[in-house]
Amino acid sequence: MVIESISLFLSKRLKMLDPDHPADQEVLRWQINIYLNYLGTLILVIVCSLFTGKIIESLLSMFIFIVIRKFSGGVHLRSITACTLLSALIFCVIPLIKVDHIGIFNIIAGTIFLFYGPSFKDEVTIKSRFSNLQLKLICIAIVSSNFIIDSPVLALTFLSQAIFVLPIWGK
């Protein structure tokens, strides 16, 4: 895929330019993948939301998704490029959906986080600092804040991330 190819090229190039760097080429490739995923998603969200007129809402969705995902984990797509495209699509479509019962979406998302979160496969950074119970409570607190904020964008963003935590995705 596109991002993976660019990451591979850049990591090989970086390692060639600095062969004594302590990180091996695979670690560099992985980190470049992450940066390009965030950058690619941000660019796509900005470009797409220019057409929808929902720039602030789309960027809000992206930001809050990243925040809650840090604490909840969730399924990873096999391709960084696919992740970038799907993420941008989600963040651009969410502000276009009309929601009348925000509280119901908050309750569903919070319930999913309570019973199925957190869902980490390989990430150890956040899990090493918090217990599963603490991570659940943080996710539920974040979602619960939307009972005060009352934002349809936040409600749908929380629900979309909660879906990625469900154990329906296999390995």
Rank of each mutant, 00 (worst) to 15 (best):
V2M: 10
L8D: 13
F9P: 07
F9E: 09
S11G: 05
R13E: 13
R13A: 12
L14Q: 08
L14M: 15
K15T: 12
M16K: 15
L17I: 15
P22S: 07
A23E: 15
R29D: 09
R29G: 01
R29L: 02
R29F: 09
W30I: 10
N33G: 03
N33V: 03
N33D: 13
N33I: 00
Y35C: 03
N37T: 00
N37K: 02
G40A: 03
G40E: 00
L42H: 05
I43Q: 06
I46N: 10
V47N: 08
C48Q: 02
L50Q: 14
F51G: 07
F51P: 11
G53D: 10
K54F: 06
K54S: 14
I56F: 08
I56D: 07
M62H: 06
M62I: 05
F63S: 15
V67T: 11
G73K: 04
G74W: 07
V75H: 08
L77W: 11
T81F: 04
A82F: 11
C83T: 04
S87K: 00
S87M: 08
F91M: 15
P95M: 07
L96M: 09
I97H: 09
K98I: 06
I102C: 00
G103D: 04
F105S: 01
I108T: 01
G110N: 03
F113L: 07
L114S: 08
G117E: 04
S119A: 13
F120G: 09
K121D: 14
D122R: 11
V124A: 14
V124C: 12
V124K: 15
T125C: 05
T125L: 13
S131F: 05
L133A: 13
L135C: 05
L135G: 02
K136V: 08
A141T: 06
I142D: 00
S145C: 09
N146I: 00
I148S: 06
I148P: 01
V153S: 09
S160P: 01
A162C: 13
V165I: 14
L166V: 10
